[in-house]
Nucleic acid binder design. Structure first.
Lengths: 352, 352
DNA sequence: ATGAAAGCGCTAACAT
DNA sequence: ATGTTAGCGCTTTCAT
């Protein structure tokens, strides 16, 4: 490969405008300390030449890299992609994150890292050394991983923790899983349900616990008992099946179930069928994730809609704009989830 | 933001190993012209220090950027993300492309560009100037856009054209849309269908035409007429509805329909229902895209599975490894699509 | 408000 | 087989 050089550099622009490199640089960056006429002359040269700064060179001279690194869990992400089950978490992150980045001349780079890995720090350090990103976005289950956050703090790279409630380094952004869970539970209670089962997700994810908490809290508020109504899965279909079977096999079985994600909700549908229970007539179901496929199940599922795009967009905004300032909120930034009511929820049979 | 410098540079490694910068550089790159013992000493220092080269610096010195740029159509991609209909094209590209890149220490950067845009060249030139990618992956409808390929050729950046059959600059990779279409048509003919309708996609995409060609060819081979059996949509649900209505409103209506994508297939399902036709008993349906949702429709759809991940992976492989060599195939690289038979296809009523 | 000089981390070209 | 030198394109000092 031939040594590829920049087609048009700051030097060309400077020559064309008849100014020093420095003046061009000033115009590129923010134009402070530049007379309007100079600014205009330089800008004209930039436009005429179609000049665009090389981010490599900008980065080299100690400036920004205009790169934001978004970290996701490797195994889970690849499994989702392979399974082709319509999990659009990554797409929503891109929608919110990439577009917001583009608005500011930044680029979002996706990176997959292993959670269960003792050299996770090495992995991250390598990505940071190679890319020198101006900011990092952490997603569950990395968001509160102390190995990761410590490294980021040490590297002095601003970062956002999506799906985190804890204050501390970086900024936390949450869709308020507990509140969302309460929302789902409340919806069922309003329909008349008292025995509402809950299928929790993987303990690797803190949000799994918050969702359980929300359900518990709302049940308590309604004076409903939760004994024997909690089952734990790991977000997989298989685990959802086992959990659903456990819940439905009981003599006093729940009249409604909240599943912590779409795969486990699918498993509940299958389990209900096996147990001869019609949804929603004999069993209501709420899915904790409004993924594409929940509109195509029979029946279409009432679901919690997670504002992934919006939250990622906010994270990027913070990293680009606010990272320098010190007026950072020490409380998590909340972008609340909403409930999309479809046909999988109805009053319980007894109350109908 | 503080002037952030590289934590550990090639200089540290050189000092630690007691060699010159150049020797370290040689070891990093491929170790040619380095004695094994030197190589080992340097490698030890690299490992001990956890050194990772800065791609910005590498790029600056005229070497590679280790960045591959993947271009997709802006409007369509954003629309798909917003609609949340489970279109996993981007995910599959990431699966195939990002992972292959990672194997070689490269990164894949996604970029969206406008098709219908007179300054598409400016957009691309800006991305190239900013990123200095080592390769570019083009997807439909950009793959054969002469404005794009000309710019890439001029910039001397290797590129791959996914979904392209034409030889020429860059390398063409195709899933053989015509063959895939023949496959779908043949499947229906084998079931006994003779009147097989076809709903074509947007003319913006060359592959739309190839799919029509495949259907025509296979119909001809079977001695079946195609008059009144072709309708043209634009990949949207609405256009699919119109096309399906047109096909089904005829006195001599088709006993089977091939829809050029999933949204139009969904529209066919709805149209069939409106016309009181049961699928597959009275109307067979093949969907040209095995997206996640086609397993959840009623009935689950027989579909053409496009090997997007595999093809993207190949494209990356070519860009990284083969771009330097001149032994490039001048014929398109074909990764054939396959047919996934589900419940939307059956023998025609008359033949049943 | 503008310019000149130095250097970021790395590799290509040229010694040796 | 190894070391030395000279930049790459840009921004940061530091002058003026």
């Amino acid at each position: 490969m031939a040594r590829r050089k920049q087609a048009v550099t700051i030097r060309h622009v400077a020559a064309q405008a008849g100014v020093s490199l420095q003046t061009v640089s000033r115009v590129i960056n923010n134009g402070s300390n530049v007379r309007p006429e100079m600014q205009q002359r330089v800008q004209a040269a930039i436009d005429a030449l179609g000049y665009v700064p090389s981010i490599a060179a900008q980065r080299m001279s100690g400036s920004r890299s205009y790169l934001i690194l978004a970290l996701n869990d490797r195994d889970r992400t690849i499994a989702d992609w392979r399974a082709r089950q319509g999990t659009d978490w990554v797409d929503q992150m891109l929608l919110g994150g990439m577009l917001k980045c583009a608005e500011h001349g930044y680029r979002l780079i996706f990176e997959l890292v292993d959670t269960h890995n003792d050299h996770i720090q090495r992995e991250l350090a390598a990505a940071i050394a190679a890319l020198q990103p101006d900011g990092v976005i952490l997603t569950p289950p990395h968001s509160d991983n102390p190995l990761i956050t410590a490294l980021l703090v040490h590297s002095e790279i601003p970062f956002a923790r999506i799906g985190s409630r804890s204050s501390g380094d970086g900024i936390a952004l949450t869709m308020d899983d507990e509140g969302a869970s309460r929302l789902a539970t409340r919806h069922l209670i309003d329909l008349g349900h008292r025995r509402i089962g809950f299928i929790a997700g993987s303990v690797d994810y803190q949000l799994s616990g918050w969702r359980v908490d929300g359900w518990r809290a709302e049940m308590a508020a309604a004076g409903a008992a939760t004994d024997g109504l909690l089952a734990t899965g790991d977000f997989s279909y298989a685990s959802g099946e086992a959990a659903a079977d456990a819940l439905l096999a009981q003599a006093q079985r729940p009249t409604a179930i909240i599943a912590s994600n779409d795969q486990m909700a699918l498993a509940v549908i299958a389990a209900a069928e096996r147990h001869g229970l019609a949804i929603p007539q004999q069993l209501s179901l709420v899915c904790f994730d409004n993924t594409p496929l929940v509109r195509f199940t029979r029946p279409p599922l009432t679901a919690i809609d997670q504002p992934v795009a919006e939250i990622t967009s906010r994270a990027v905004e913070y990293l680009i704009a606010g990272a320098g300032s010190d007026d950072l909120p020490d409380v998590p930034l909340v972008v609340p989830a909403s409930l999309v009511v479809r046909e999988s929820t109805a009053p319980p049979a007894a109350a109908a």
